[in-house]
């Protein structure tokens, strides 16, 4: 049954956490997401999750300017898309209706 659903309408717990953090902070780097999640996101898997979310259209990314003088590679900044924001609010309101404890 679940196979017939389009992938874009599914969201995992990790993806919800990423969406929450991005909506709260607007724009974050991958490592900032790991730090802000307080251990719930791992450095080794965060980019896989972010890539999957980009595929689903929940977030978008842009290349930041490389650090001046340091010559390092440009870092990628992530921000939520309108679809991602809608998904988060829909999930939050749905969860609050289903489980009233969420609303407290």
């Amino acid at each position: 049954m679940s196979k017939s659903h389009p992938r874009a309408l599914t969201v995992s717990r990790k993806e919800l956490l990423v969406l929450e953090l991005l909506v709260r902070h607007e724009q974050l780097y991958g490592l900032q997401l790991v730090a802000a999640s307080r251990g719930r996101l791992k450095r080794g898997t965060v980019y896989v999750t972010l890539g999957r979310m980009e595929d689903k259209g929940y977030i978008t990314s842009t290349l930041d300017d490389p650090p001046p003088g340091a010559g390092g590679m440009p870092r990628r900044l992530y921000e939520p898309t309108p679809l991602g924001r809608r998904m988060l609010s829909a999930w939050s309101s749905g969860a609050k209706q289903l489980v009233p404890e969420f609303a407290r």
Partner: peptide, 16 residues
């Protein structure tokens, strides 16, 4: 673009 470069960019930024 999605996995290797961001991971290495983080590494280089932190290392620098």
């Amino acid at each position: 673009a999605r996995l290797v470069d961001p991971t290495l960019a983080d590494l280089q930024a932190e290392y620098g």
